[in-house]
């Protein structure tokens, strides 16, 4: 059996990759993908602890989280689509309509 620490390390690595991508990228699609990465790293944690503690509620929670992530991704990409149609770009730096 793989020890719990390995799972946690994997989760931390994926989260850090997501975080780095979220901060460094300008493309809206990439940013959304990074958000997904961060979300799923948390899911790994949930499932790992669930298995480790022999408690099913963690896995149920992960299922909810995945469903939510799917909904969020659908809305996020729909927004990106309409922005692209309107502005012909999905570079988030250029979306500063409400800035001073």
């Amino acid at each position: 059996m793989i020890p719990l620490n390995w799972y946690l390390a994997l989760s931390a690595i994926i989260f850090s990759i997501g975080l780095y991508g979220f901060i460094s990228q300008k493309n809206g699609i990439r940013i959304l993908m990074c958000v997904e990465l961060m979300l799923n790293s948390a899911n790994i944690n949930l499932v790992a602890f669930s298995s480790y503690n022999d408690d099913m509620s963690g896995q149920v929670f992960a299922l909810f989280s995945i469903a939510l992530a799917a909904a969020e991704a659908a809305i996020g990409f729909a927004i990106m689509m309409s922005i692209y149609r309107m502005r012909d770009a999905i570079n988030l730096d250029e979306l500063n309509l409400l800035r001073w």
Binding site: F22, I23, K26, I31, L95, L98, R99, W100
Partner: peptide, 17 residues
């Protein structure tokens, strides 16, 4: 204070993180 609001999403996320 309004200068804080750069409109660059990364700046916000850095602040949050």
């Amino acid at each position: 204070f309004r200068k804080i609001q750069t409109g660059v999403i990364q700046h916000y996320s850095v602040a949050v993180i």
